[in-house]
Simulated scan of single mutants.
Amino acid sequence: MLYLLHGTDREKILNEGKKLQDMLLKKRPDSIVEKFHADRWTAGEIEAYAKSEGLFGNKYIVTLDSLFTLEEGGEGLFEILPSIKDSLNIFFVLESKLDKKTLSKIEKFAERVNEYSLPTHKNTGAFSIFSLADALGARDRRNAWILYQKAKLSGLEDEQIHGTLLWQIRSMRAASKSNSPAEAGLSPFVYQKSKRYSSNFTSRELEILGDRMVEIFHTSRFGGADLGVFIERELLWL
């Protein structure tokens, strides 16, 4: 059985995932809890949990956290989704905002899909986070840095800002490697903009930038520097 929790509100996703896990543990106190992260899993391991039971018939509760944060990192999950869906064990997939193509592939196998996203902005001002994404796409480091400061002043959290920037990078990569919006898994409007912006970078530069954005997210989560410091650095390095 599969539960998908995704969106830009990372704190809410983690809290709701913990609540569901605790609720299941009350019903199944002998369950065995396992957790996998983007840099520590294989499709074979996950499928083995989907098809097995613990010692003495114990069930597993397995959390798959941020597998899609790495470029093509979660691709191997698609092939084993049928096994997860039919499993007697419980699987939680916790992800940031997913593109339509990835979401549609997962949700058809999910018992429940919940999206938890932060508001686009917390005040009544006209600031749009997508103006910052556009500055990144245009490779305008000065404007990107200024817009980052405006984003912070408008009340946006660094995790939402980071998620939007990573979405822009991935959209550019997808558009640069495809010939149509459908192939890229993007809306026509986003595809056209991303295709245009991708010409400001080489394919290798987009790959490196995407990898660095994923790395700074994980580093900040596990006790590194503040995420905002990392974001500013990346914008100034455009």
Rank of each mutant, 00 (worst) to 15 (best):
M1D: 06
L4A: 02
L4M: 11
L4G: 03
H6F: 15
I13Q: 01
E16H: 08
M23N: 09
K27Y: 05
R28F: 12
R28T: 15
P29G: 02
F36N: 00
R40D: 02
E45R: 01
E45A: 01
E47Y: 01
K51N: 14
E53Q: 13
E53V: 01
G54N: 08
G54F: 03
L55C: 03
F56I: 11
K59E: 10
Y60N: 07
V62D: 00
L64P: 02
D65K: 00
L67P: 00
L70K: 06
E72D: 15
E75H: 02
L77E: 03
E79L: 02
I84G: 13
K85P: 04
K85M: 11
N89L: 05
N89K: 03
I90F: 14
F91Q: 03
F92A: 00
E95N: 03
S96M: 06
K101G: 08
L103V: 12
S104V: 12
K105D: 13
A110F: 06
E115F: 04
L118K: 03
P119A: 10
F130R: 07
A133C: 12
A133G: 14
D140E: 10
A144V: 06
A144L: 11
Y148S: 03
Y148F: 14
K150D: 01
D158W: 04
I161E: 14
T164L: 12
L166M: 09
W167L: 07
Q168R: 06
R173S: 15
S176W: 00
K177V: 14
P181V: 05
A184M: 09
L186Y: 07
V190M: 12
S194T: 00
S203E: 10
S203L: 14
E205R: 00
I208Q: 08
G223A: 05
G224E: 09
G224M: 13
A225H: 11
